[in-house]
Nucleic acid binder design. Structure first.
Length: 976
DNA sequence: GAGCACTGC
């Protein structure tokens, strides 16, 4: 059976070879996979030509190919099923041997793992379906991929050499009757044998031709094949080369080994035209060469989004007038120039008439800064504060600063802001900007928001977890407090949804200030979006007018590769092209380096910003004219069934595609290059799934419960989380004793809710009171909640970094204690930055940990926990951790992997853990993440008795039995 | 022996 699958693969490979000139196992697999999915031959043809843009072989050939493959595929399907079955049987016998027997639970565990894998696979396939053959096409042929975007001098030579080698290979295959054909010329075996190098090849061929010829139709001809997309006619190219070769001989009397290349260059130089902007026009001398690309990415210009500038003349007049005035007056004039100003009275009227108003206005319209001021001027602050929530700390701070400036008051007096670790308000404050999470916390103290007269939820379209919860709460409050005005402000897309949610609230929309943006899609899907992005950057750099470029990538790794690649390709070019300044930016990048992107671009140079999603919302950069959007981002998803998180590269939504596009039109007309097709765009989801649907809800549930909301299933969510996720969270809280069996909040739960932490961490802190180690516990909690960015591991010093990290693990104390060691060592050095560098620890993360620790210390008092230190009793500390994390325990299996206790599933210790080599029998883990395997991160050894002692309701003795005894009893059962 | 988008309390 296996042979039929192999033969199909070989056959497909051959076919691809003849159609494309190359083939690769992954590509073969991919094509077969497509054939499996296809419903008919026509469908398959479509799929193939859509998915593999490069398969633009003549349609007849393609059709014949698909017909054939379609009849052959069923063979493979049988085969595959069979294999699967075999594997399953095999696996079953293996586990049976090892584990004794317990088929029920074993196969369930397997099913869970398999489900997960399948889900991920499906996800991967879906990703591909939207954008094309990204992953599988990637390794198709390193050379080809490289060609697509390589600048001529960098890889043209290599490319041609390879092409030629291929041609020679083909020649070799064509041997017939001891005759060797090349370009219609017969060669002897000896001559053929000498075809080691192009030079020789040309030499021989040329001589032969000269003696035989004369076929003068072979004039020097520009190979028009270059102009057609996708296909390059090798024959024509060789013709050109030969002709060129001959010319060289005649003119110079000397053989030029790169004659073919020269011909090609000449042709391209004649064809291409390097355009510079008018500002830095340069004289192009003869020996200058142009940048040309083997395969152009065809972009289709589909639409131009019009910009709208409200009352341009009026605005400029106002600005003109304001020049001569004082700073404060000028600010007032500027305020009047904002688009929102002309709608001021209507807006105030609408707010007067309705309790809830949905406001739609694009960024830059001034809604965040102006509306609260208008309301203040209209006297709303006499009854109470005006609150305005922002999803981000920086936004809250900077907007507050701006408004206080405009109003001519000191920040923190009439205008203030409130964010975690920093409350910049006073009794005088009437305009309060804050993060949405902060308002959520305020709800705990003031459930009816009595001190507020107006509440504005800004950037509602972002749908952060906190805003989503706020919606439900605020809607409820508004019903009981008719005097409370509610403003929901959002970008265009969701407006109606918001309006529906708030009982058909009126939508008040006004234009922002925006310039037209031209949107370009690719004609065919790009196999590798990274290469396509690099190509597009270079293309823009060479061909388009001055203006900075912005590239959206998914993560640090991608940014680094693209940066390297761009540097490499522009390096050897010196002054031949304008300078390209590459600015990477992602959240983990040290702040000093981040600020680089805000430096103005020097005259004559061009800046290219490589950014993650951080730029989609969090920061704006001026002067961006071109946006390159590959259409992907990393997204976290959560599986409540297994409690596993995973971070996957996923296609973005239409909403974020448009958000990204908008980055181009801030300061002038711009262009957006989407590295996917119009069809792909139409297939995208309208909106990104709100966070509430893809996250662990334990914390949310705890907050809602402590606000007195009991029936969570009936809570008015704008998008309800799955009941499964809610139940999972409730169960967890119940097992932590934060809820009683009726689902009511316990005293313990109320104390836990005070901490801005995951419930399990909060529980560990509350429990540390009993073990007299609260001092240590809050340090650990702070370190854990800064995340995984504590250790710094540069690529070139991985060994050193790993050694430094292992120093904290001496005695195999486990990762939690290691984190404590890190914190304490840092504290002992007086919070030294130098110490951090020496130990490969990130200063920024440590400072954050210190802030969090300080906050937690303050909260200890509030919930009545004494700050006690018990540094030498590691067991107590571990027991305190266990009190919070007992649901996250795992037992070592005989095969060296672990198995979590509830729900049972396979897991491994993450290699970055200090215990990765130690493999204790029982472990506790902080989180379970699915990447290539299910990994437990931050692991500490555990004694199984603790589980039974600390959480008797959760673990019965039989759960916590050692694998040895378990095996025995299982064996006995089997015998019975 | 592995890779971590972005927020927020």
């Amino acid at each position: 059976m296996g042979s039929s699958s192999d033969s199909l693969k070989t056959w497909v490979s051959d076919q691809l070879m003849s159609m494309l000139g190359y083939s690769q196992p992954t590509l073969v697999q991919y094509v077969i996979a497509l054939a499996k999915q296809a419903t008919s031959t026509g469908d398959l043809v479509n799929k193939l030509s859509v998915e593999c843009g490069s398969l633009s072989s003549s349609s007849d050939t393609l059709h014949a190919f698909t017909e054939e493959i379609f009849t052959r595929v069923p063979l493979l399907l049988d085969d595959a099923d069979d294999d699967d079955e075999k594997r399953r049987v095999k696996r079953r016998t293996i586990t049976g041997d090892e584990e004794g027997d317990d088929d029920g639970s074993e196969s369930e565990e397997e099913r869970l793992v398999r489900d997960q894998r399948e889900e991920q696979l499906e996800q991967n396939i879906r990703n591909r379906d939207v954008i094309g053959a990204r992953k599988l096409m990637e390794p198709v042929n390193a050379l080809e991929q490289d060609d697509i975007t390589a600048l001529r001098r960098v890889s043209r030579q290599e490319y041609l050499k390879k092409r030629e080698e291929k041609k020679v290979e083909e020649l070799r295959d064509d041997i017939e009757d001891e005759e060797y054909l090349f370009d219609g010329v017969k060669l002897t075996e000896a001559e053929y044998g000498e075809l080691r190098h192009k030079k020789e090849l040309y030499e021989i061929v040329k001589k032969k031709k000269q003696s035989v010829e004369v076929d003068d139709t072979r004039e020097y001809k520009i190979p028009e094949a270059y102009d057609q997309e996708g296909s390059v006619n090798q024959e024509k190219r060789f013709d050109v080369a030969l002709k060129r070769c001959r010319d060289q001989e005649c003119v110079g009397g000397k053989m030029n080994p790169f004659a073919e290349q020269e011909a090609w260059e000449d042709y391209q130089i004649g064809k291409a035209m390097l355009k510079y902007g008018s500002k830095n026009k340069r004289q192009i001398s003869d020996d200058d060469y142009q940048f040309v690309f083997e395969d152009q990415i065809d972009f289709i210009k589909t639409s131009v989004v019009d910009g709208y500038n409200t009352d341009n003349e009026e605005v400029s007049k106002l600005l003109e007038k304001s020049k001569a005035k004082s700073a404060l007056e000028r600010l007032q004039e500027e305020r009047k120039s904002l688009p929102i100003y002309s709608y001021r009275d209507e807006l105030l009227q609408a707010i007067q008439d309705y309790q809830v108003v949905v406001i739609v206005g694009e960024t830059g319209s001034g809604k965040t800064t102006q509306i609260p001021q208008y309301l203040h001027e209209a006297g709303y602050t006499k009854r109470g504060k005006i609150g305005c929530t922002q999803p981000r700390r920086v936004a809250a701070m900077s907007v507050a600063a701006r408004v206080s400036h405009e109003m001519g008051v000191k920040l923190g007096h009439e205008v203030g802001y409130s964010i975690r670790f920093e409350d910049c308000t006073s009794e005088k404050t009437v305009l309060k900007y804050m993060t949405d999470g902060m308002l959520l916390r305020e709800f705990l103290a003031e459930p009816d928001l009595e001190s507020y007269s107006v509440l504005m939820v800004d950037e509602a379209h972002e749908r952060t977890l906190s805003t989503d919860i706020l919606f439900g709460l605020v809607k409820d409050v508004a019903r009981s407090r008719p005097d409370l005005k509610l403003l929901i402000s959002s970008a265009t897309l969701d407006a109606e949804k918001f309006s529906d949610f708030f009982d058909s609230a009126p939508i008040f929309s006004f234009p922002g200030r925006r310039y037209p943006i031209e949107i370009n899609y690719t004609k065919a899907p790009e196999a590798d979006y990274l290469d396509a992005a690099i190509f597009t950057v270079l293309h823009i750099h060479v061909k388009e007018e001055p203006g900075d470029i912005f590239v959206f990538l998914t993560g640090q790794e991608e940014i680094e590769t693209v940066e390297e690649n761009l540097k490499h390709r522009t390096k050897g070019l010196g002054t031949k092209i304008a300078e390209l300044i590459i600015c990477p930016i992602y959240a983990n990048l040290p702040i000093e380096l981040q600020s680089k992107i805000f430096e103005p671009t020097p005259e004559g140079a061009r800046k290219v910003v490589l950014a993650t999603n951080i730029a989609e919302t969090s920061l704006t950069i001026d002067g961006i004219k071109y946006v390159i959007d590959p259409g992907f981002c990393k997204m976290k998803s959560y599986n409540p069934r297994t409690g596993m998180e995973s971070l996957l590269v996923a296609p973005i939504s239409k909403a974020s595609a448009n958000q990204r596009k908008g980055r181009a039109g801030r300061t002038g007309p711009g262009k957006c290059f989407r590295l996917y097709t119009v069809c792909s765009y139409n297939d995208l989801e309208d909106n990104t799934t709100p966070e509430i649907k893809r996250t662990n809800l334990a914390n949310v549930v705890l907050i809602l419960k402590s606000l007195g909301i009991h029936d969570l299933l009936k809570f008015d969510f704008m998008d309800s989380p799955t009941p499964e996720a809610l139940m999972e969270a409730l169960e967890l809280l119940f097992s932590l004793n934060a809820l009683n069996e009726r689902g009511e909040l316990t005293m313990l739960g109320r104390r836990m809710a005070e901490f801005p932490l995951d419930p399990m961490l909060s529980k560990a802190i509350v429990a540390s009171d009993k073990y007299k180690c609260s001092d240590e516990m809050i340090s650990i909690a702070a370190m854990l909640s800064v995340g995984n960015s504590i250790f710094y591991r540069p690529k070139d010093k991985q060994v050193h970094a790993d050694n430094a990290r292992m120093n904290f693990h001496s005695g195999n104390v486990g990762d939690h204690i290691a984190l404590l060691n890190v914190y304490n060592s840092w504290k002992e050095t007086g919070y030294s930055t130098q110490w951090c560098y020496e130990n490969y620890v990130q200063v920024r993360s440590m400072k954050r940990a210190r802030d969090i620790r300080d906050q937690l210390e303050g909260l200890l008092e509030r919930v009545g926990i004494e700050l006690t230190s018990n540094a030498n009793d590691l067991e107590s500390i571990k027991k305190a951790i266990t009190s919070g994390f007992f649901p996250h325990s795992a037992r070592l299996q005989t095969n060296g992997s672990y198995r979590t206790v509830k729900p049972p599933q396979a897991a491994h210790i993450h290699p970055s853990s200090g215990l990765a080599q130690v493999l204790p029998r029982w472990v506790l883990y902080h989180e379970l993440v699915l990447t290539t395997k299910a990994y437990m991160r931050q692991v500490t050894e555990l004694k199984r008795e603790w589980l039974v002692d600390i959480a008797p309701h959760w673990y019965q003795l039989k759960d916590a039995e050692d694998s040895g005894t378990k095996k025995k009893s299982r064996g006995e059962m089997k015998r019975l």
